[in-house]
Simulated scan of single mutants.
Amino acid sequence: MELSVLLLFALLTGLLILLARGRPKARGHLPPGPRPLPFLGNLLQMDRKGLLKSFLRFQQKYGDVFTVYLGPRPVVIICGTEAIREALVDQAEVFSGRGKIAVVDPVFQEHGVIFANGERWKALRRFSLATMRDFGMGKRSVEERIQEEAQCLVEELRKSQESVHKEIDQVIGSDRPPALDDRAQMPYTDAVIHEIQRFADLIPIGVPHTVIKDTHFRGYILPKGTEVYPILSSALHDSRYFEKPDDFNPAHFLDASGAVKKNDAFMPFSIGKRICLGEGIARTELFLFFTTILQNFSVASPMAPEDIDLTPQETGVGNVPPNYQIQFLPRQRG
């Protein structure tokens, strides 16, 4: 019995010593943040419903740049439009490393354009861009292929009475297939697409970056190898750039004359050297599919628009749109 008591006392003493030591030495170079526990870091302080809510809560207390420990590993969290752009654009090369993702690292082992680093990543990115251009990215040929697919979707919708995702209706008065050139005549439609992307918030936390060399950032020293999480959602809902960030409002992307305006906080594909390679083709697909559907159908919902909840559902580090019931009512052609 006495031995058990001594062992318990020794264990408690060791734990108290660890707690007294507090944060690891590297912490002195990094931004402030919630105090970590030994081994567990800040995991017990994380919201069970997802990392994003926890990070946004910490942002309120510690500001746009802070450090959390995911277990024993320190991660610098960057929130807000200015801080994210300062890191990924102004210091793009320094923040161009790719952090490890435990669930995918054993599979990819730093191969592939998303997860590679260094010269391997640069070579893969050049090869990927060249290949996508060969397949027609940025050319009229790929636009024509997307239009064909959009028309196939329209035909399937005409055959089916099934419900699908998303709720938006914008009348486009033309019988011809839409083209990218139409964007100049359809600023409101383009603004609606931007707002759908912003509000859907499908990738709220950018894929982890790493610092490839020691650097100063906002008054702190980031040692080489430090992992960095850009919280894209904090930019897409930044009240400094969107008048009503929690409301669905296409006017966020329209100027006083009704033309589409650029917004520095709009970064659904991330920004900087690690920006999504498929951004261009994704924007083309969104515009052509959206406008093709709305040329051919009116969209109706069984519930009143004000009763529809547009809040994305958080699933770990990603979001998915809620399920909606929708009717596609064929338009009458004159």
Rank of each mutant, 00 (worst) to 15 (best):
D255L: 11
A251N: 15
D255P: 09
P204M: 08
F253P: 00
D190W: 00
D247K: 14
P268I: 06
T215L: 11
I271H: 05
F253H: 11
P208H: 09
L202D: 02
K213N: 10
A259H: 09
N263E: 03
A265K: 00
S233I: 00
Y188W: 12
H209W: 06
I271S: 07
F199N: 02
I196Q: 09
Y241C: 13
V207G: 04
V211K: 07
A259M: 12
F269W: 11
E195Q: 09
L202W: 13
P223Y: 11
Y229I: 14
G225C: 03
H209D: 05
L202N: 08
D238C: 06
L202V: 13
H216I: 15
A265N: 02
H216A: 15
I203Y: 04
A265P: 09
P204T: 03
D238T: 08
D190Y: 02
F266S: 05
I205G: 01
S233F: 00
M186R: 13
V192I: 15
M267A: 06
I193T: 06
T210R: 09
V192N: 01
D214E: 14
E243N: 07
R218D: 03
L232S: 11
A265Y: 03
H252S: 04
V228T: 12
P268Y: 05
G258R: 14
P245D: 01
G225W: 03
A256P: 08
A251P: 00
P245G: 00
F253R: 04
K224F: 10
L222N: 00
P245E: 08
E195A: 02
A235M: 01
Y188M: 13
P250I: 04
S239K: 13
A251Q: 15
K261P: 00
H237S: 10
Y241I: 08
F242S: 05
A235W: 04
V211I: 13
P268A: 12
E243C: 08
G219N: 00
I221N: 07
G219Y: 02
D238N: 02
D190L: 12
D190G: 05
D201K: 01
Y229L: 15
P230V: 07
D247V: 15
F199G: 01
H237R: 12
H194D: 08
R218E: 06
L254P: 05
A191R: 08
D246S: 13
A235Q: 11
V211C: 01
T226C: 12
L254S: 03
A191W: 06
A256F: 01
P208N: 02
F269R: 07
K261S: 06
D238W: 10
H252N: 05
I196N: 09
P187E: 05
V260C: 03
D238Q: 00
I271M: 07
D255N: 15
